[in-house]
Nucleic acid binder design. Structure first.
Lengths: 206, 206
DNA sequence: ACCTGAACACCGTTCAAGT
DNA sequence: ACCTGAACACCGTTCAAGT
């Protein structure tokens, strides 16, 4: 006769409740407006309760960042799968997944790629961003055929920079300030296509 | 017999003193560690004094962002000038200036391109980021020769995204975590070169 | 005109005390 | 084991009062 299977009422799974309320709060208020006391309030516990699950506010933020990277990697892999077998198309797919995650979780995404995150990740998920790079590196390698390690590294840098830069500039308003979201998608795809073309071309020099 | 020509001792130019201490504090403590009371302390005034020059903390941050964009544009223009007349080289030069500013002012740079800045800039410098784009757009146009407005727009997006993405990922640690700064510069130049080549090529299709 | 000191409503973190 | 309430040292912002 419990409300939920896990007998978690208000407490019982407070850690998870804080992660959930924290994530929503972050998107609503931005990094600077994020507050541990408000997280606790939304989870219906006292302001001192979170300390029993996270040693500090930074540890909660670090957990959000860690989960964000997991979801980002999953979103990229899913889109690449949908794109088929062609390396160039798969590379574009990785970019589409990347941008879609960023657009849907813009504040978290920015936190993940901010220097604040570097301070957090000293104690947190170090290999988190690595997974993104290796996903890209593998696909770049496919697109290049056999190429030197240096070329592979540079094209991975280039591919990552293109998708990251584009969506960041969109979120901040530098690109497409008053475009429809449909028009923005087209512009994003164009940037990804130019990127993929450059990568493929650098693998088979004329 | 005044110490400085403007008889500004501790007060007298408090506004400027706050901008200066604020900028240093921002780099030292990060966006989340930035505090108006600490700015006041470093300027040797009471915590209530800043209110007479900035209506709120956000207005001081907005001023820092505004000045940041001015410097960024100047740094880009200076490097492009040094690069000579060749459009591709000038485009790389704009990127070099962009990245150099970002590396030297990493926290401010991130604030300038964060969604926090969007909230600030509602009341502040709206045309600030525009100047960066138009600098890029002009140079892309030179590189393309005559091309449709759509192609120009897309190549400007692409050029901006490449430089912005690369330096952001470097600052966050995603690219070149343990590379020397010399090696990083080489990698950055490689990304810019790939970008410039793609832009030029899209202007003269085969 | 410009600055201060006290006040207010917040915040993160700690810790004895409760269940 | 988990949570609370009070306490501490901060914070942004306001405002009467001083010069």
């Amino acid at each position: 006769m419990s409300r939920s299977k896990t007998r978690a009422y208000h407490h019982g799974d407070l850690r998870e409740a804080l992660v959930a309320s924290g994530r929503k709060l972050l998107e609503e208020k931005g990094v600077r407006g994020f507050t541990l006391r408000e997280c606790a309030r939304r989870a219906d516990v006292s302001h001192a309760a979170p300390a029993h699950h996270f040693a500090s506010m930074d540890e909660l933020l670090a957990e959000l960042v860690r989960r964000g990277f997991e979801e980002l990697v999953a979103a990229m892999a899913a889109e690449a799968g949908r794109a088929g077998a062609e390396p160039a198309a798969r590379l574009v797919g990785l970019g589409v997944g990347y941008m879609a995650f960023a657009a849907a979780n813009s504040v978290l995404f920015q936190l993940m790629y901010s220097q604040e995150a570097v301070r957090l990740e000293a104690k947190a998920a170090d290999g988190a961003a690595e997974a993104v790079r290796s996903l890209l590196a593998d696909e770049v390698e496919e697109a290049l055929g056999h190429a030197s390690g240096e070329v592979r590294q540079r094209m991975t840098d280039f591919a990552w920079a293109t998708m990251h830069g584009f969506i960041t500039l969109v979120l901040e308003g530098g690109i497409g300030g008053r475009d429809s979201s449909r028009a923005l998608k087209t512009r994003g795809l164009a940037a990804l296509a130019a990127m993929a073309e450059t990568v493929v071309r650098s693998g088979s020099p004329r």
